[in-house]
């Protein structure tokens, strides 16, 4: 005889474990994270789970976040710097629902920031964790397709091939043309792919106050950069590493020295450059900064409309 459907029973049937993953899985992921922190830049294999979203949409990042999130955490999710795009909104909603945590868009208020390919403009502070969604964790992948060989190259610190790629860039384009997923050396040992963040963000990884965790779901790898770790972008003595430079400030908030997105305005070649970090842009506008193309709030004339 089946037990009568009480309210508690119904709840149990329909509910997930806190933050979706079961506790054993979280422990397994935490072990991988701890190992990653102990060996900065080393790719730790882990038993990646199926998540309720397609590979390539951040399954690695979501698993890392699920393993570290607690009831008191405040979560921020960004997608290319923006808090309001599909991926960011759905992942934020996912954790609001499965873990019941508070969410925010303000960088300084967040304790965990899950990111797809940007580091916020506001400097991170101690105690914050930045979780990256990584599509391809292996920086040597496109130069050496064999996983057995790349692992050996990491083990023996044979990184000459990485410079072959940079050499090729200069030979073809006269400068290092790699603009994202720019390889870095972590604490003088492992060469690491900083996930496809623009190289503009590479200097922010160096000696960061925050803990940086990287999760690649499809490739089943986790790696980490602990706080206050040296992260150096690879380069040549006569072609040193450079970040992107923008000729004009943000069209909405007038910010300089930030990473800008190009927005096409019409089909006549009109375009503008705006902050990729939406929270940074909004908070600057709230402070009264105005860019060249920032319009005034439309004055609604109710009577005229009728």
């Amino acid at each position: 005889m089946t037990a009568p459907m009480t309210e508690t029973n119904t709840q149990n049937l329909a509910s997930y474990n806190f933050a979706y993953l079961d506790e054993q899985t979280k422990r397994m992921i935490r072990r991988a994270i701890l190992k990653g922190i102990a060996i900065p830049g080393y790719q730790v294999p882990f038993a990646s789970r199926e998540m309720p979203m397609p590979y390539g949409w951040g399954t690695g990042g979501v698993q890392v976040t699920a393993a570290i999130i607690g009831r008191d955490d405040v979560l921020k999710v960004i997608d290319q710097g923006a808090d309001d795009t599909t991926n960011a909104v759905s992942i934020r909603a996912f954790f609001a629902k499965t873990a019941g945590v508070a969410t925010t868009t303000a960088t300084p208020d967040a304790t965990i920031i899950q990111t797809r390919h940007r580091i916020p403009e506001t400097p991170l502070h101690a105690g914050q964790v930045l979780v990256y969604q990584v599509p391809i964790p292996e920086p040597l992948r496109f130069l050496e397709p064999r996983e057995t060989e790349t692992r050996k190259m990491h083990a023996l610190e044979e990184y000459g091939l990485m410079h072959v790629k940079l050499y090729e860039d200069i030979a073809r384009n006269g400068r290092i043309a790699t603009t994202y997923a720019y390889p870095v050396k972590v604490e003088g040992r492992y060469v690491m792919d900083p996930s496809p963040t623009p190289k503009f963000d590479n200097p922010k990884m160096h000696q960061s106050e925050a803990l940086q965790l990287f999760g690649a779901g499809r490739e089943k790898r986790i790696y980490a950069v602990p706080p206050h770790t040296n992260v150096v972008s690879l380069d040549f003595e006569d072609h040193p590493f450079e970040i992107q430079h923008f000729t004009e400030p943000c069209a909405l908030c007038g910010a300089e020295q930030v990473y800008l997105d190009e927005v096409v305005l019409d089909d006549k070649g009109g375009r503008m450059f705006v902050c990729s970090d939406t929270h940074h842009c909004e908070s600057r506008r709230a402070e009264g900064h105005r860019g060249a193309l920032l319009g005034d709030e439309p004055v609604v004339e109710k009577e005229a409309a009728i």
Binding site: G160, L161, H163, K165, Y167, E168, A171, D235, F236, E237
Partner: peptide, 27 residues
Amino acid sequence: LRMTVSAGANVGERLMAVGNRHYGNIR
């Protein structure tokens, strides 16, 4: 050989592998 990188990079690979980091010298 590495068929997909230039002749110069093919010759320079060993130099880069032993720690040469000056593009002009390698070339």
